[in-house]
Each structure stands twice: as C-alpha cells, then as structure tokens.
C-alpha cells in the first residue's frame, strides 16, 4: 500500500506549508495584522473576547481570529507549528512542553487564583455528608480531575501536603468536568477538582468545598497564560508587544467590569444567563506571579511530571 507513503508525504507537505505560513501574521496595507489565537472556550478567556468586542485589539491594529480548541494540549502544537500566533494554556502544560524541548515563550497573564479560600476559580468539592473535612483527609481517596499529570493533580497534592496529609496516596481519576457531578453523586469518586460553572452548580446542589488548591499551592497563583514561540518572541517583538498591550488592557477591563465579563460568556460558551450570574469569576491581573510559576515548576519536578535532569527554566519561559 502507498498509504503510509502518502500519509508521510502529506504530513511532510503540511509541516512544510505550516512552517511556511508560520510567518502568516499577515499584515495588510493599512498596517492591520491578522493573528490566530488558540483559546479554550471556557470562562477563563472571557477577557480576550471582551477585549475583541471593546476594540482593544483594533487599537493595536490587530485583527483577532479566535480559534476554540478542546484543551491546552491541542493549542501548544498549533502555536509551535505556526498555525496559531498565540495561544492560551495553563502553566503546567507549558512547563511540560518546555521540558521536552518545545520552544514556547509566555507573553502575558491568563488567569490567576483569587487567593481567597473557597472563592476561587477552582476547588475540591465533596458531598455534604462526606467524612472528608480537611484537605489531608483526601489521602487515599479517589479524586476526579480533568487531566492527569497536569495542573489539577499538582495543585491538589500541594493542598494535601500543606495540610500534613499523604499526597502520594491520592488516587486521581481523569474525567471531563461535566461528568464529575454525576460520578460524585453516585459515589464513584470521593471528591472532585472542579472549575466554573460546575463549581457553583455543585455548591448549589448542597455539596461543600473541602480545599482550594490554587490558594494552597502559591499565593495568588498564576494558573494560565498566553504564549507564543520563542522564535516569534525574538523576531517579531513589535507584534508581541502589541498583543501584550491589547491583552493587558483586556485583562484589566474584564477584571474591573465583571458584569460585562459575565455577559460575554453567553456569546462563546453555552453558559446561560443565570448560570453566569452565580459563578465565581477568576482573577485577571496583568502581572504574572513569577514565584507561583517557580513553585509549580518545582512541584512538577518533585511530583515526577517532569523526569530526567532537565530542570524547567522559569526565567526562559516567562517574559
């Protein structure tokens, strides 16, 4: 069969063309640059949608094409291959990518933890009648997270460790956020690490928060960021600066206008009005908390997410 040949040829052709369109941040005559940005269509990226609506990107002569993707793991390759100019990803995924030699470079902040117990973008929730009262009780229990070996389990372990529990004995189970509530109800799992809008839904159903891992991991932890490739960061500094400026303005605006941020959710998610009203919004500061990134890097190494001698280089990753 010539299929594998064909596939290889196609793959080769595509990588070549992808590499070719790597510089595809096409700038038209009037100086407007068209850029593709990979986002995950959840509440975390409300600022960029809001900024687009408010014209913050137009001010920087940027034409924004938002490309929704299923998860950060799909966005990183997109950015690295040049399909996307910028992308949204959590810090742990980027640390992992960097440790495997992928040329990623953070541009600006994405979302941060509120730093307030029980009032954060994510929490560990148990049933009301559960015996689990404190984070350390999670030891030896089944905890659902959306992605194994990533931010969720890293932060939950940090929380348990801080409370003096045995973090190694937690049994993590991977499942999509929407499925967690049913599994918790049925008792298939003991606790869930969950984000909005599911967090407020679960609480409304009478469950309770037992830990706020992001808060326990680092003070005002930077959870996710916008990034590009090291190459773009070096060769197209102007573009990166303009994106940074527009993005920062968007973050500030969203942080100070929560009602507008809630309203924009309905335009790109299926989160309906009343859900959006009740949910806890993440914090969108402009500043990246470098210590919290370093803390996550250290945890990634000590938890065995990153193996081998190659230590993550936080300074090289961050701008």
């Amino acid at each position: 069969m010539r299929r594998p040949l064909l596939a290889l040829a196609a793959a080769a052709a595509l990588t070549v063309s992808a590499a070719a369109c790597g510089e595809s941040a096409t700038t038209s005559k009037n100086g407007v640059t068209s850029i593709d940005v990979g986002v995950i269509p959840i509440s975390d990226v409300a600022p960029i949608y809001l900024g687009q609506k408010k014209g913050f990107f137009d001010e920087q002569k940027l034409k924004l094409n938002l490309k929704p993707a299923q998860g950060g793991a799909a966005i990183v390759p997109g950015v690295v291959s040049g399909d996307l100019e910028f992308g949204f990803s959590n810090v742990v995924s980027l640390l992992l990518a960097q440790s495997k030699g992928l040329p990623v470079k953070v541009v600006t902040n994405g979302i941060s933890s509120s730093g307030e117990e029980e009032k954060d973008f994510a929490s560990v929730i148990v049933k009301d009648d559960s015996k689990i009262q404190k984070p350390k009780d999670l030891a030896g229990k089944k905890v659902a997270i959306n992605t194994l070996n990533n931010a969720g389990d890293t932060q939950v372990r940090a929380s348990v460790r801080k409370d003096g529990g045995d973090a190694k004995s937690i049994k993590f189970v991977e499942m999509p956020f929407p499925d967690m509530s049913a599994a918790l109800d049925k008792g298939d799992i003991d606790a869930v690490w969950i984000v909005e809008p599911f967090q407020s839904q679960l609480l409304a159903d009478g469950n309770r928060i037992v830990a706020t891992p992001a808060v326990d991991t680092a003070e005002k932890l930077t959870h996710a960021v916008y990034f590009t490739t090291t190459k773009t960061a070096q060769t197209d500094q102007d573009l990166v600066k303009r994106f940074q400026a527009a993005m920062n303005k968007s973050l500030e605006y969203a942080d100070s206008h929560p009602d507008e941020a809630r309203a924009i959710l309905a335009t790109y998610t299926k989160i309906k009005g009343d859900q959006a009203k009740d949910m806890v919004l993440p914090k969108w500061p402009v500043e990246i908390n470098r210590e919290s990134v370093q803390a996550q890097a250290d945890l990634a190494v000590s938890d065995g997410l990153i193996k081998g001698d190659k230590k993550p280089d936080v300074n090289a990753l961050l701008p």
């Binding site: 269509p41 959840i42 999509p176 809008p197 599911f198 839904q201 998610t269 299926k270 989160i271 859900q275």
Partner: peptide, 12 residues
C-alpha cells in the same frame, strides 16, 4: 461534535 462537547461542558 464540537457543539455537543460545548453543550456538555456548559451543562446544557
């Protein structure tokens, strides 16, 4: 398919 996963993750 994407719409389905959107609806699912939005709890609709």
């Amino acid at each position: 398919g994407h719409e389905i996963s959107q609806a699912q993750s939005g709890g609709a």
